[in-house]
């Protein structure tokens, strides 16, 4: 936002309107997943593009522009989530999160998902706490590597692995329960 008070050089041939129209929906969806609120997501998406616009000179054309904008949006949303709670270390792995051998109780999602629709998965995802929701969204919606996620969340790569693994377990549990209820019908 230094641009507010200085003249900047803008990358040549970059029409921001086009970039915006091309990526807006995807950024909005990302914000929806991360924030779990359509209203806040709209504000966040707008803010992400404002930040991108103001920081265009820091964009490295060697990487895809979309990745750069998604990163800004993710960072902004995570900042919002951090601000929401007094506890800044929301993505820290605590004692209950360390990996223990599988109980064999939960089966991979694919089995469960055979009878489920995407909307149910999204609803189940929305019901997870941000601690597990955010890493899952970054990994499977944004398709970021553990390394990239750890950089965004500011936690160790090994912790990201545990959060994603646990997150998927919780997701299975929630979808499984719903299926269990619906089966008798």
């Amino acid at each position: 936002m230094v641009g507010a008070v200085e003249t900047r050089k803008q990358p040549i041939d970059l029409d921001f309107e086009v970039v915006y129209n091309m990526h807006y929906r995807r950024v909005l969806n990302l914000c929806r997943y991360l924030l779990n609120s359509p209203d806040k997501a709209e504000d966040a998406a707008h803010e992400a593009f404002l930040r991108a616009h103001a920081r265009l000179d820091s964009y490295n054309p060697a990487y895809p522009l979309s990745t750069w904008i998604f990163k800004i949006a993710s960072n902004y949303c995570i900042d919002l989530l951090r601000r929401k709670t007094a506890e800044k270390r929301i993505f820290d792995v605590d004692a209950g999160d360390h990996y223990d051998p599988p109980s064999g109780g939960s089966s991979p999602l694919s089995e469960v998902l055979a009878a489920e629709r995407g909307r149910d998965v999204r609803n189940a995802l929305g019901s997870l706490t941000e601690k597990y929701r955010v890493p899952l969204v970054l990994a499977y919606y944004n398709e970021l590597s553990y390394e990239e996620i750890s950089a965004i969340l500011g936690v160790e790569r090994s912790q990201v692995a545990v959060l994603i693994f646990r997150g998927k377990e919780y997701l299975r549990e929630r979808l499984g329960k719903r299926l269990g209820k619906e089966k008798p019908r």
Partner: peptide, 24 residues
């Protein structure tokens, strides 16, 4: 397969083009 399904389910909403993009 689980990962594929998850990616597919989450990215499913990107195909919804019904909403209008507000002017920047």
């Amino acid at each position: 397969a689980e990962n594929r399904t998850l990616v597919q389910c989450l990215q499913d909403i990107d195909s919804d083009m019904s909403s209008t993009v507000p002017e920047f």
